[in-house]
Simulated assay, not measured.
Amino acid sequence: MKVHVQKYSAVATWKWDVAEDEVCGICRVQFDGTCPSCKYPGEDCPLLVGKCGHSFHMHCIFDWIGTESSKGLCPMCRQKFEFEES
């Protein structure tokens, strides 16, 4: 018996490779979702991991660091926020 496939639909899923956190500490949206500034998850809004180990959506942490009250500190642990080189 031979089978001929006439049509198929592929489905894929992806996740960010983040060890600890599952949600952005600023906007509280899951990393697999989008930050409030974006329409679609993925490379347009990557995750940034600080040397302190906390992860945030790129737009969220840039907005946070841009505020005067943040003083350049991580919103989770209040250490100086520096990006981890990957």
Rank of each mutant, 00 (worst) to 15 (best):
V11N: 10
V18I: 15
K39L: 10
C77R: 06
K15R: 13
G50L: 09
K71I: 00
K39S: 12
P41I: 02
E22C: 10
C45A: 10
D21A: 15
Y8Q: 14
V5K: 08
D17R: 13
I26M: 06
V11W: 05
K51W: 00
S69G: 03
K39N: 03
W14I: 04
C77G: 05
T34K: 14
F62S: 11
E43N: 10
V23C: 09
W14N: 01
D32I: 14
M1D: 08
I61N: 02
V29E: 13
E68D: 13
E43Y: 10
V49S: 11
F62K: 15
S69P: 00
A12H: 09
Q6D: 07
V49I: 13
G42L: 03
V49C: 12
G50H: 04
H4Y: 11
Y8S: 14
M1Q: 06
S69M: 05
G33Y: 06
S55R: 01
C35Q: 04
E43H: 10
E20H: 14
E84H: 12
G66Y: 01
V23M: 09
K51C: 09
Q30P: 05
T13K: 10
C52G: 03
S70V: 06
D32M: 11
H57P: 01
L47D: 00
V23D: 10
V29Y: 07
C24A: 08
C38V: 00
R78S: 12
V18L: 13
C24E: 05
G50Q: 06
S70Q: 03
C74A: 04
T13R: 13
H59V: 04
Y8F: 14
M1K: 10
E68W: 04
M1S: 11
Q79T: 14
C60V: 02
E20N: 15
V11D: 05
F81I: 04
M58L: 13
T67L: 11
G42Y: 06
C52W: 01
W16I: 03
D21V: 09
C52K: 02
H54G: 03
K71Q: 12
T13D: 07
H59N: 12
I26C: 08
K80C: 08
A12L: 09
P75M: 12
E43A: 15
F83M: 15
H4S: 10
M76V: 15
G33P: 00
S37M: 07
C38Q: 11
K39R: 12
G25W: 09
P41C: 01
H54Q: 02
I61M: 08
S70G: 04
C27R: 08
S69T: 09
C38F: 04
H57F: 15
C77Y: 04
Q6F: 03
V11S: 13
C27M: 08
V23K: 14
C27P: 07
R78H: 14
L48G: 00
Y40T: 14
W14R: 05
C60K: 05
F31H: 02
G42K: 05
F31L: 02
V49F: 00
V5S: 03
V49Y: 00
